[in-house]
Amino acid sequence: MIELKGVDKVYRTKTIETTALNNINLLIDKGAFVSIMGPSGCGKSTLLNMIGLLDAPTSGSIAIDGVQINAYNDKDLAKLRNEHIGFIFQSFHLVPDLSVLDNVELPLLYRKGMNGKARRAKAQQALEWVGLSTRMKHFPNQLSGGQRQRVAIARAVVGRPRIILADEPTGNLDSVMGDEIMKILQELNQENATTIVMVTHDLVQAEKSQQIIRLFDGQQVN
């Protein structure tokens, strides 16, 4: 369902050209749980950004459900991300000015035909699922790291996306909290058949997934 063919990503400045990804070919099936591993700076996050349509490849093609998205404009990409992809970031990226409930509601703001009441109900449901129903009116700075990441997971799943992209979701958490987050991701994958692509440095966590993709210097290694 996610297919990358010959994807290259080259960053150019006036004097330097840096190849972040080189000829990546990937096929991630629907409902798969895939980990991307590799040393720092090998292109893991860049690859995740490509899959998440947050960045465009310099060359090569990306297809989701067989549909090439290379020709998509800003509006089409935004719609695709909103309806099909949820993101979880290492540093949470919660909006500090918004309450926990408002943060979780955020993706639904960009979904057509959903009123405030329905948005609220879905956000509450998502927060209940991650065990934070008592913290809805709190602000991100009033929560622990683990709680923040659970809010971020609630935000990622609130729109019922088919794909969750997690960029080192346990990277800023202790092992207990990390395990908790992994359990939630596994549950999401097994019970909802959500495709999960996770970037991690942690082999123990990576081994909990079904497939590991290894990168080195922007290239896929087996």
């Binding site: 935004a78 991300r81 703001l109 960009y110 979904r111 935000r155």
Partner: peptide, 16 residues
């Protein structure tokens, strides 16, 4: 920028 990135990631178009 973090807020902008998050909003974009979750479906906000540039016009929005």
């Amino acid at each position: 920028s973090s807020e902008i990135g998050v909003r974009k990631a979750f479906g906000a178009s540039s016009n929005k």
